[in-house]
Design a binder for these strands. Structure first.
Lengths: 338, 338
DNA sequence: ATCGGGGGAGAAATCGTTTTCTTCAAAATC
DNA sequence: GATTTTGAAGAAAACGATTTCTCCCCCGAT
């Protein structure tokens, strides 16, 4: 009924528990005869070491904390998968938390992570300025890897996506297809990815010698509703653009819904390109041209950075930047002109 | 640098560590004077109890294991959210694992759960027959809650959705709209939800006095590719149906893609209704009529069942069945006829 | 033949809590 | 006034592992 302990194994094998421990941890200085006796006792009893006791003694855990900012966003599912696979391949477990873009919830989970004495933490911070608690946790010695979003202050490992370049490529694509009045449904300024994508948009226009019309620029909060609202506003007030670049997936869904309700055809009336590809992007009302992010790899690389830091706490901080890829479908009208 | 222990707190407050422990656990038999001294020491040192030590001593953890069968499926995201919220509201943490519909991976995670001595386990089993390892883990005394899928043998708590009724309602809807030759892209027979939804399809036809044409019935594996393949096959061989009921969300996406590629219009040429609603179902190529499941509640109820069993291990096993809701959009042609 | 070195294995300390046991003093009972 | 009861608080045991310490034995070198 009750689970066997190392003592039970030792008793059954007729050795001390120190010897059992040595066998389990592959200590070479143990007699083959005893070793096999221990192994047998372990398997007949179905013994598994108590991880709490192990962690208590070792003062280190094999648990990785993962705090993401919005579990409702399909973008992060793939990230989670990458983290999980990489972690479990190294015998590490993952505790997943969802801050839901809420600073106070994030603060709570940071405390949980500290109390749990996680080996390391991978976090998508929900605010790039107000991150004192993250910096503070970092000071206590817990390795922290930033994922997807960088902080304005503080030196840390990070794995990011080249958002500026990705956005620029997307908007340049629109320009090359002949669109001139290109609107932006941008991300929030308090998140680095939002800023970067907005910057990419401006870069593309400037590189093409096109004017930047502030009337065509709106700023949302990465949620669907804001995409819907800003798009409705954009196309009904004044003269509408002939193309829209939307800075993330959920807002793009909002945009699509708004356009459909207003009976504006995509891409015939307005072309559309979004950031973040999704598995079903091609099955949407208008198959979506989108900037695809290497989400799974993002999660994996975060774990790799973490393991590297655990192995060498003094290593210089590294920021790893992965590249995006533009997936061309029909929503920009590419097919119409080619 | 190093984290403070209960000893440091005791020393600073000038009391024994037993007293500190008593204060922290709200033991009433402690002098108010000492109590406040301890509280102050705790807050100035920023002390947080070591959870490993606590768990080791208490022989119980506050960690809930959650094994889901496919993290890529948007269906489960909401389930995860429900579990998380309910768990954290009770100060419990969640370890998330993804079996990816793979029996050997599931077996591995079950071992992890046992070694972690989780307080309880919520699991979406990936096979309803081959579940010996789940039953075995259950025997060791760890409370297990089945989510979404029931096992053919073994008595356990479970929280399910009324799949038969949901499917029946969906197909009846098609019948009421005048459709007669209704095809089924069904789920796999080795999963209870697959079986139930297939049964609901048959029930609806029988109740309406319609013949069951085995030529119109295909069986997939709940993945997108099988929806795509089976649909292509269905509509190109012999005479196509005038409606299709698809047994889950990913296969529905496959069906939609196949129909679009074959230039078959939905709902004009073929009507479509799927199981599992998604946040963007209304934004698809054809806005999808779908059976919506209370996924978030499913996760929450699983936690509630678990807490109930932890409180009373001898309570009779309970199966909780939640109801679905048919969300009518355009893919069935309802709008066309009303 | 004696000493030094090293390997094998048990005894015991340790990790940070909680909880039982013990002690002591003050209050309550007769 | 002597004895039992109560309660506060420290000392110590316990949880289950790992690791250091210690001991013993055997082998090789002087």
């Amino acid at each position: 009924m009750t689970r066997p302990t190392i003592k039970d194994v030792a008793e059954r094998a007729g050795v001390s528990n120190a010897t059992v421990s040595r066998v389990l941890n592959n200590n070479p200085h143990v007699d083959d005869n005893l070793r096999s006796r221990v192994m047998e006792a372990v398997s007949t009893l179905g013994y598994q070491p108590n991880r709490d006791a192990r962690r208590l003694r070792a003062q280190s855990s094999n648990v990785i904390g993962l705090i993401i900012s919005d579990i409702q966003n399909p973008y992060f599912i793939s990230v989670i998968g990458g983290v999980e696979d990489a972690a479990y391949a190294r015998q590490m477990n993952v505790i997943l938390c969802n801050s839901n873009e809420d600073l106070s919830k994030q603060a709570m989970y940071l405390r949980v992570m500290e109390a749990e004495r996680v080996a390391g933490l991978i976090i998508v911070p929900c605010h790039c300025n107000q991150a004192d608690d993250i910096l503070q946790l970092s000071k206590t010695g817990i390795p922290i890897i930033l994922l997807d979003r960088v902080l304005v202050s503080g030196n840390m490992d990070a794995v990011l996506v080249d958002n500026v370049r990705g956005a620029q490529e997307a908007v340049t694509h629109l320009i090359e297809l002949g669109h001139r009045r290109i609107a932006l449904i941008g991300g929030p300024a308090y998140v680095q990815t939002g800023r970067d994508r907005n910057q990419g948009y401006r870069n593309a226009l400037m590189a093409a010698g096109l004017p930047i019309d502030e009337h065509l620029i709106r700023s949302g909060d990465f949620k669907m509703e804001s995409g819907y609202r800003l798009t409705s506003d954009l196309v009904t007030n004044g003269d509408p653009p002939d193309a829209i670049f939307v800075a993330n997936n959920l807002m793009t869904l909002g945009t699509l819904r708004a356009l459909r309700e207003l009976r504006i055809r995509v891409p015939e009336d307005i072309a559309l390109v979004g950031f973040d590809d999704m598995p079903w992007s091609g099955d949407l009302y208008s198959p979506l041209t989108a900037v695809s992010q290497p989400t799974y790899e993002l999660g994996q690389e975060a774990v790799h950075l973490l393991l590297r830091r655990l192995a060498d706490p003094e290593a210089p901080y590294r920021t790893m930047t992965l590249q995006t890829r533009l997936v061309v479908r029909e929503s920009c009208g590419a097919q119409l002109r080619n």
